[in-house]
Design a protein around this nucleic acid. Structure first.
Lengths: 168, 168
DNA sequence: CTTAACCTTGACGTAAACGGTAAACCTGTG
DNA sequence: CACAGGTTTACCGTTTACGTCAAGGTTAAG
């Protein structure tokens, strides 16, 4: 069995406490996320995912953040039923927000910071709108099914009453 | 222009009031639902949709119920992101419920009717569970975005305060 | 009855989202 | 350092969900 504790290129702190979590091989990411290695490479090819680094031998190395991103992709794919292209757009908004965060921390001018917040909010609003649209559609579906159950409960009550009056 | 008022094979009632809505051609269903004719034929091929009848010349004829079913399919596809195979399974549950409804109306035994209601309910419950699972996932996503907006509102308030104290 | 416009059933083509395999390279263990 | 097993890129194959085209039958209007 090879590659037991792979790629500890990020070292420990002087005291022995881990400052950076060790980077992961593609196999480890695959087993943690339930995706196949092929799929991870494919997502990278589409620009959805960029592993934090590469080993000396050109092996992909993933950080915990990368794993989180993978989970995010899965969520968007399974919950929202988005195509990978749509997910890409969605994540690009995330990325721009990340950039804005960085810029925000370096910016000192109050007006500029307010403008950045504004921009960031519109990005979020757009995502929220998409999600809420899906939710209302689903809730509509749910309530129609629920109504059916309610009608059945009504019928059931009638039938039970019928039965008890016969039992007498 | 051909096929102006196609396929009135279902006739009127004696009084002139329409008892049955006229059946529709594939073109009409396509334009009403926004799907293409090809897609409608494909769905039929997969067993998702079976037009109510055929004309003498072997043209597909759709009823209003058929149109509703198409809308249902669209919902399941777009909202839930289901594959057509999953939609097929979902609709088969609908169909069994429909059969149960018929059986229910013909059944007079109270116990039997109760059992049918029970069976019907479990079918609905299964569908509900799927939907609710999606909804909670989406709501989680939504609240995380909302939290971000809230934090930004907080920051914005701080910045505005800063500005006003400088204005002074 | 002719004809434009619609329909039918194939059959082939395609984009998306991967699966699988080959050829060559990397890595930890004995 | 040998080697089993993990990884890389490259490329071809497959399934799903249709698009598109061809050959031939149907329908309504003139």
């Amino acid at each position: 069995m090879a590659m037991a504790d792979a790629a500890c290129s990020s070292e420990q702190t002087g005291t022995g406490r881990r400052r950076f979590s060790p980077l992961l091989t593609i196999e480890q990411v695959a087993s943690r996320t339930g995706l196949t290695k092929r799929t991870l490479r494919y997502y990278e090819e589409l620009g959805l995912l960029r592993p934090t680094g590469r080993s000396d031998g050109n092996y992909r190395l993933y950080s915990e953040d990368d794993v989180e991103r993978v989970e995010r992709i899965k969520e968007l794919r399974d919950l929202l039923g988005f195509s990978l292209a749509e997910i890409r757009a969605f994540l690009e908004a995330d990325d721009e927000r990340e950039q804005l965060r960085e810029a925000f921390r370096q910016e000192s001018d109050v007006e500029a910071r307010l403008a950045q917040l504004e921009r960031c909010d519109t990005l979020i609003q757009r995502q929220l709108q998409l999600i809420e649209q899906k939710i209302t559609g689903l809730e509509q579906l749910r309530s129609s099914l629920q109504a059916r159950l309610d009608r059945h409960a009504q019928r059931r009550a009638e039938l039970l009453q019928q039965r008890s009056s016969l039992d007498k």
